[in-house]
Design a binder for these strands. Structure first.
Lengths: 322, 322
DNA sequence: CTGTTAGCGCGTTCAG
DNA sequence: CTGAACGCGCTAACAG
């Protein structure tokens, strides 16, 4: 036995036509118990494996998932969360016989989206960093095979996750809590902001919000901005560990002690969080499950769930009151 | 204009046969200037884009790159270096019209490799974590479309990188330098070890080697092992930042100061390295270039280069002498 | 240099 | 329920 047996070989051995063999093996269409048995046996005997590429050509479906990450910065593809998600998606596509291609989308990406819509190798699209405008401009040809990671799709329950961290800050006595939110253009930035606003409203605390971009650099400048505008701030919550790292650096540079003077929280539970000093309180997320869910949804299968838990991980950075 | 024009449409409009059109557009085979011109014009007029899947079926080539990482632990796919490399490979395959699938291989992986060899959707294989045994057992069908990341393939010049860090330790007065090397089964573990041995031989320092596995947990235990066997150790070099983090934790737990009592170095320049306290000296690597090089090599194209620079990044963890 | 013909391997009508 | 025939879109062998 050398080359791969094809459907015709199986059909011949089973004494049926290729059409019948195809129906039996794909499970679609009618078939008698007799032929079903013969075909199955023949396939097993020959070690038949359908040709993935031929199958996709006949089905007019693509061969890869494109994971498109929209961001202003090109180096977003090196972001720890993005690389982890990309790896997870890539691992999730392996058993499907598919592959994953990673692509950055600039903020206005209509040209790239049109290109993807016309690319017949694209089986489905997984989108991160979307907003309403982007979704509205999504080519019709992609609509029914696009899934989103973040608000409206396979998402972390960031309202609950950030909310829990905020409540912990409040519960341990912090009363002047600032938030470094996500970028304004990002749909996923809304939920944590809502959680923050809700706490502020419920408690009557002062509202202190600035916007970040998931980078350490911006974390530093945002922290400085907060301390300049509201010098008595006693806690800074963020929506990414990288941002929180920048905050820790800025505070250290100013001689402020964490958590004594200012408490800090991150988000995502990256390896950073346990590495920094003091240990960063954050929230942990099942990125791999989210990736699988998004891939499933993009491929049109019923996705197991949409909102995934955001579990707080408390370390010393948000310890007791000042 | 609605659906995609096919090669026959182009040929018809250009007044030639599909064979000629194919030859012109693919650049393979002879063609007259006249027909070349006509075909090109027709293709441009119609906005012709070849069907990637049909092309690959006819070529009998696959549609995806499989990035297989061999390791004892299943969660190696969450390792920062692996996710970054996977993302880079995934990004590198996008312009090629291919996708990437990520797969973990157990230490003895002959069954999985056979499966990959038989999988006609696999265009090429990129392998990490290999050793001689694995390479010897590589199915013949994969031999000419496999590239390796690490020793013998697209690799970091880890001998130079680790060597530079070791020399820095020596140059700043350290005289009892231990090394936490990579796992024994890994081919890529050899080069750093050689760099270490060379320094030991040249200087007459005592040889202190234990083996790690790129995890923080093992970094901790390895550091404890070193301190138990050789209590006067004044420097610990590692071959991964995660390992170095474990070392820092173990030293802190023992009340040893870094770098005053013991200097520490990492490898890979992960986000960890700048986040920890004290800042971790490490070496930085062009992972994205390495990934592209490996993909190119796997696809059979002449790869631009094999050995990529490992540039030391000095932070306080390997500062002045005790 | 060109066109004809035959694959690549599977899916899917549509008569029987 | 079955099978012959065609379609998916492109490439390659082979006469001319």
């Amino acid at each position: 036995m050398t080359a791969h047996p094809c459907l015709a070989d199986v059909a011949r051995r089973a004494g049926v036509s290729t059409a019948t063999a195809s129906r039996v093996l794909s499970g679609r269409g009618p078939s008698s118990a007799a032929s079903r048995d013969a075909v199955r046996r023949a396939a097993a005997d020959l070690g038949y494996v359908p040709h993935p590429v031929a199958r996709r050509l006949a089905h007019r479906s693509g061969t890869r998932i494109v994971f498109a990450v929209r961001d202003a910065r090109a180096d977003i593809l090196r972001d720890p969360f993005v690389t982890r998600a990309a790896a997870a998606i890539s691992a999730a596509t392996e058993p499907e016989g598919l592959g994953t291609a990673l692509l950055r989308l600039p903020l206005s990406a209509s040209a790239e989206l049109d290109r993807l819509a016309a690319d017949r190798s694209v089986a489905a699209l997984v989108l991160a960093g979307h907003d309403r405008t982007l979704m509205a401009g999504l080519p019709a040809a992609l609509r029914d095979r696009t899934a989103v990671i973040g608000a409206g799709g396979s998402d972390v329950d960031s309202a609950a996750g950030v909310g829990a961290l905020l409540h912990h800050l409040y519960g341990s006595g912090r009363r002047r809590i600032a938030l470094i939110a996500g970028p304004r253009w990002l749909a996923a930035s809304r939920a944590p902001l809502t959680a923050y606003t809700r706490l502020i409203r419920a408690t009557g605390l002062p509202e202190r919000v600035v916007h970040g971009d998931f980078t350490t650099v911006r974390g530093r400048s945002a922290a400085r901005e907060i301390l300049r505008r509201w010098p008595d701030t006693d806690a800074i919550a963020t929506v990414s560990d990288a941002t929180a790292l920048g905050v820790l650096q800025a505070l250290a540079a100013d001689g402020l002690r964490v958590p004594h003077d200012v408490a800090v929280t991150g988000f995502d539970d990256s390896p950073l969080a346990e590495a920094v000093h003091p240990g960063l309180s954050t929230a942990t997320h099942p990125v791999e499950l989210i990736a699988v869910s998004a891939v499933r949804a993009a491929l049109g299968a019923p996705s197991p769930g949409r909102l995934f838990p955001s579990r707080p991980v408390l370390r010393t950075s948000c310890g007791g009151a000042p």
